[in-house]
């Protein structure tokens, strides 16, 4: 190839000079960039701004009130209940999802038969409409004709109006939440188990750690530690964003016994039209999510650098 030819090729490869490349870049990313600004970046700014006002949805006037929304949030028993309920719900959902997900993953992986089948049926709730399935859960938990009470009565366990009892509503929502997230944790753990090198188990065999518990303690669980942290955060994020089951099943009741963050946000913003106040809740929610996501990014990065 002559130098003249190669120069032409070079130009074509680099789509001419730098400015043309820049232009092509902006043309390709333009629509997405505008939409990200309009649909994500500006609205985020708007939420932060509205949270500092006393605006009611539809009102013509508003005034800047600084951090007053946040101070009244702290004093608001309904919001404190929402925070408390969200935390309590998460504290029930997250450990049970992790423990069940890990146990089931170990159990599925311990044999060779029907692996795909068991994975599929446990994963099913994760991808179905939680709104539709919440209606089914309402039927299951129906005080008189519900399957749960029928079975409990048949085996002599106490029955209850689960969704209407102040002490039963959160645990029962946590059961539904666990039921939904379990499949995700299971699948993530299964992927983690697959990634453990067989050599480590062989080395354990030769070193004398060949019992089930020894292998678990020496190889399986330590190897799963990064995955577990990851699952922990993903499931926690999902638990904090619980909304559908509350909207369909309890509407936050009885009293405020099952109000959680997102439902409080929805209720204040769109039912009570206390928009500024709702925006303040949105900001609190955002802060929590960002904290968890930052932690998640750290986990992912540390996983990438220490394989």
């Amino acid at each position: 190839m002559t130098s003249e030819q190669s120069a032409t090729v070079d130009r074509q490869l680099r789509i001419d000079t730098g400015s043309a490349e820049t232009l092509a870049g902006y043309a390709l990313i333009g629509p997405a960039l505008v939409l990200i600004l309009v649909l994500f970046i500006l609205p985020t700014g708007a939420v932060l701004a509205i949270a500092a006002t006393d605006w009611h949805l539809g009102a013509k006037t508003l005034s800047f009130i600084g951090a007053a929304n946040f101070t009244s949030l702290l004093a608001d028993p309904a919001f404190r209940a929402a925070l408390f309920n969200t935390a309590a719900y998460s504290l029930m959902v997250v450990p049970s999802t992790l423990v069940l997900g890990l146990s089931l993953a170990l159990l599925i992986e311990s044999g060779k038969t029907l692996r795909a089948f068991y994975r599929a049926i446990h994963f099913l709730p994760f991808m179905t409409s939680l709104a539709a399935m919440a209606i089914v859960w309402e039927m299951l938990l129906h005080p008189t004709i519900g399957l749960v009470n029928q079975v409990f009565a048949a085996v002599g366990l106490p029955t209850a109006n689960w969704l209407r009892g102040e002490s039963t509503v959160l645990p029962i929502l946590a059961v539904i939440g666990t039921w939904q997230s379990l499949g995700l944790a299971l699948v993530l753990f299964l992927a983690g188990l697959k990634a453990i090198p067989q050599d480590l188990y062989d080395a354990a065999d030769i070193d004398g750690a060949d019992g089930v518990l020894d292998r678990l303690r020496l190889v399986t669980l330590p190897s799963l530690a990064p995955v577990s942290l990851f699952v922990l955060i993903v499931v926690t994020l999902r638990a904090f964003a619980a909304f559908d089951i509350i909207q369909v099943l309890t509407r936050g009741g009885p009293g405020d016994a099952s109000v959680m963050l997102l439902y409080a946000l929805y209720r204040e913003s769109f039912e009570y039209f206390r928009t500024g106040y709702g925006a303040a809740i949105a900001v609190v929610f955002l802060v929590i999510v960002i904290a968890l996501a930052t932690l998640q990014a750290r986990v992912v990065n540390s996983r990438a650098s220490h394989p």
């Binding site: 990200i36 649909l39 994500f40 970046i41 500006l42 609205p43 985020t44 708007a46 939420v47 509205i50 964003a241 909304f243 997102l262 946000l265 929805y266 913003s269 769109f270 928009t275 709702g278 925006a279 949105a282 900001v283 929610f285 955002l286 999510v289 960002i290 996501a293």
Partner: peptide, 14 residues
């Protein structure tokens, strides 16, 4: 940033 922000937070301005 867009990836990070839960959609429900933006519901009001949207």
């Amino acid at each position: 940033i867009g990836l990070l922000i839960p959609h429900q937070v933006l519901a009001l301005p949207l």
